[in-house]
Computed example of a mutant assay.
Amino acid sequence: MYSQKVRVAVNGYGVIGKRIADAVVAQEDMELVGVVDISSDWRIKVAVQKGYPVFASDSEAADLMRIAGIPLAGTLDDLLKRVDVVADATPKKVASSNLEKYRAAGVKSIFQGGEKHSLTGHSFVAQANYETALGRDTTRVVSCNTTSIVRTLGALKSAGILKKARGVLVRRATDPWESDHSGVMNTVVPEKDIPSHQGPDAQTVIPDLDVITIAVKAAHTTSHLHSWSVQLTRSASRDEVLEAFRKAPRIAFLRMDEGMVALNSTLEMMSDLGRPRGDMWEVGLWEDNLTVQDDELFYNYQVYNQAIVVPETIDAIRALTGIEKDGMKSIARTDQALGLVHMFVENTKSL
């Protein structure tokens, strides 16, 4: 259908949107036509410095952005006339109100996990259900935590050894750039409902998952931590479980005996590796404390919420537009362009 590069717009140039924009630029089969925002602060000025065409969300925002000296290429309505697909990374409720505008413009759309499944009728994680998104007009990339659940439990399910899973999520208080005005301090807050929303959300991607999640919010901003207790379909060896995770995309191993002992040390390593913004797109799973006892499995992993959904969004662009019919080929292409790995450090030992 698309003989040339897919033309992409990113609506919302915040924590997720700016990362999606950079990821689109890194793909050989995509063109970033423009980014959209209402802001006139340093964030959108960085987009200007990068050479990204900037569009205002509406005429009112356009006036304020021009006063601030932002060179504008037009408004969102102008941009929608020039693109094939829009990745919407605007705040909750704002995003859902945009869907009809995209439909009226004949533009395919991708939303983020803050929106409800009912908005699009389809929720997306590339390794699990890429094929069901082919040719659709819209989909929703699930949240950071839900993405990690589908990646890891999906790996066990594909290996035929997953019976049921129970997970505890220790969530970060807020995004780092909002820590001056948002988030909890000096406390841990249990979420009111059990299961927390991440388990049911994972079932929108893999309906037959037997999963229950419990979540708490803690006073830190580095990233999320998951602790899982899994019942397997049978007794299995530790090596068999590790091999299931190795075969899955976008899971990378961490080792405490190499100094990766906590959330902060992992993110320090991302910076040392030269990752853009210190991002970790993979699920960072601790290999050396993964434990198997007969048919029970226990493990911990880290979720860097600012980046994990970015490669999924890139794959969703390919699925909706149909430029790549094979999900695993799209995953491989995305991961090579961005630099995803299975081992963060080349000499990492494997038990």
Rank of each mutant, 00 (worst) to 15 (best):
I251R: 01
S158V: 07
G183H: 03
G154T: 01
G106H: 08
K164R: 15
D335Y: 09
I67M: 10
V168T: 15
M328S: 14
Q49R: 13
G160S: 07
R172W: 01
H117Q: 04
G259A: 07
S39G: 08
I314M: 13
L320I: 05
G322K: 04
V142Q: 04
N264T: 11
E324H: 06
P200V: 04
E100S: 10
F245K: 07
K164W: 11
S96C: 09
K93N: 13
R19G: 15
I251A: 02
E346S: 14
A104E: 12
D201G: 07
R166K: 10
K325N: 10
T266K: 12
L99F: 08
Y301W: 10
L338W: 02
A26T: 11
A47G: 05
A202L: 07
F253C: 05
V46A: 15
A26L: 12
A73L: 06
L64A: 13
G339Q: 05
S39I: 02
T334A: 13
H220D: 09
R277C: 01
V25N: 00
A332C: 03
S350Q: 11
V310T: 14
L209N: 01
G274D: 10
A319F: 00
D193N: 14
V36P: 08
I44L: 02
V6N: 05
S40V: 13
R318N: 09
R255A: 03
N145C: 13
A262C: 15
R136F: 07
L79F: 05
E31F: 05
T348R: 10
I323T: 14
T132L: 00
R103S: 10
S237R: 03
